[in-house]
Design a protein around this nucleic acid. Structure first.
Lengths: 255, 255
DNA sequence: GCCTAGGTCCCGTCT
DNA sequence: AGACGGGGCCTAGGC
């Protein structure tokens, strides 16, 4: 346990427990593979029977228990306030508690294939782009190019009784325009959002509601038209290139 | 690689590549820890710089790349259609492709701490309970106990122009009642859903909309009242015990 | 394949 | 703390 990382293969239950007591101090990224069952109680409740499992415990207290299949973990704990390691009747038992919301995840392993860890792991930087935020900024800055008309925007992410609307503006004829932006194909819930924002705008005058997205589902289109709202198709490639003219050539080509 | 599992500590880049070419055939749950960077392009785009990473590849093709912190993976692929393993300029490079949607995740590792695997992992059974489905069934079967009045329900999960409504019924006075059920505290989007269902019901007569949940947010309550809709608090413990009288004592006690 | 809605969603951000 | 909406959300169920 002195190096940067370590692995112990086929530990006994007691050896595994001893190792984990030292390792689960928040300094290491720990992986335990073995034959385990699990129990969760909290916002919901679940049980899993014995089977091969992969347990990951990260510095910061995130706990993730994977079964052999699927993408999502069987059980997890986004953060942990208290951890217990013990052995009982030939089982390695782990308990991970969380305060708010009150939850507990219990894991019991009858065999442990290996315990592996990396100490004081270094965190690289991470950037994500092409988000809805990027698209909203592009629309706000370049309405003529992206919506086909000039709109002067005066507010973003403004609170209304129905929620937060993306963009507020005034069109060439002086109409209030409320814009809801979606980075992906717009569905009915996007229309419901926009409908609420338009209805909540405190005026007797006509308020235009525009849904801006690369595409819209048929059902959403019908709902939108029945409510007198508008849809504007936006080209993601064009939007992002307006925002960052010099960047992302390869990313855009991929789209 | 003959046993049920295996671990190789501190492999060279070439050794790691050789191992992974054999291991990434869908027969094993594989873990790679090392110093890696990553790139993703698809529905969005992201990059991460060199740092300690934990790569998990499951049978079935799920790929999960964790950094040292947080609960969610930095990058992932829910399923993979094609995988490439190579070495280039002292780096282990892995590429995971997906068809629909078209996405690619590229990982490059300059050091590999360990490669570990479990072959032909056995899957245990998994049960989850106390879902929204359970609650909806409880309300449909026991309206008097849970809503305080007799309602005869005649439809569930029925399609409307605004989406799918949870329950349709008729109350003691012959009014149509539409019920939206939430297992957790109801928010504004729940009210918007219910509002749409009520509005879409094809009748001139009064239609009651009832939101059923263990709790409701203040903003949602205001929106609900302004729209003439009703709220009924439901006790999860009671609902669940009505559904399964003989079961779940311990789970309920925890709530 | 698309679409809808749930989820122990998680997560940031703002009040 | 709660609350609201985004997310490469994922996943199940319909069509």
């Amino acid at each position: 346990m002195d190096g940067r990382f370590g692995v112990v293969s086929s530990p006994t239950i007691e050896e595994a427990a001893g190792l984990l007591e030292k390792l689960l101090d928040g300094s290491s990224m720990v992986v335990v593979a073995g034959v385990c069952s699990s129990e969760y109680e909290g916002r919901g409740a679940s049980v899993s029977t014995e089977g091969d499992k992969l347990l990951i415990v990260k510095p910061g207290g995130a706990v993730i228990l994977h079964g052999p299949r699927g993408f999502r973990p069987l059980n997890w704990q986004p953060s942990t306030s208290h951890t217990e390691v013990a052995t009982a009747e030939g089982l390695l038992t782990l308990k991970f508690y969380r305060r708010t919301p009150r939850e507990v995840l219990k894991i019991a392993c009858s065999s442990v294939w290996y315990v592996a860890w990396v100490r004081f792991p270094e965190e690289g930087a991470f950037w994500m782009y092409m988000t809805e935020d990027d698209l909203r900024r592009a629309v706000a800055l370049h309405p003529r190019e992206l919506l086909g008309e000039d709109i002067r925007f005066f507010a973003e992410e403004k609170r209304t009784p129905s929620g937060k609307a993306d963009l507020y503006g005034v069109d060439g004829r002086g109409n209030i325009v409320i814009v809801e932006v979606k980075r992906v194909r717009a569905d009915e819930s996007a229309v419901r959002q926009l409908e609420g924002y338009v209805r909540d705008y405190p005026t007797q005058a006509k308020v235009r509601g525009i849904l801006v997205a690369p595409d819209i589902s048929d059902a959403a289109r019908r709902l939108l038209e029945s409510r007198g709202l508008e849809f504007r198709r936006v080209d993601l490639k064009k939007a992002y290139s307006l925002l960052k003219p010099g960047r992302g050539r390869s990313v855009l080509d991929f789209l």
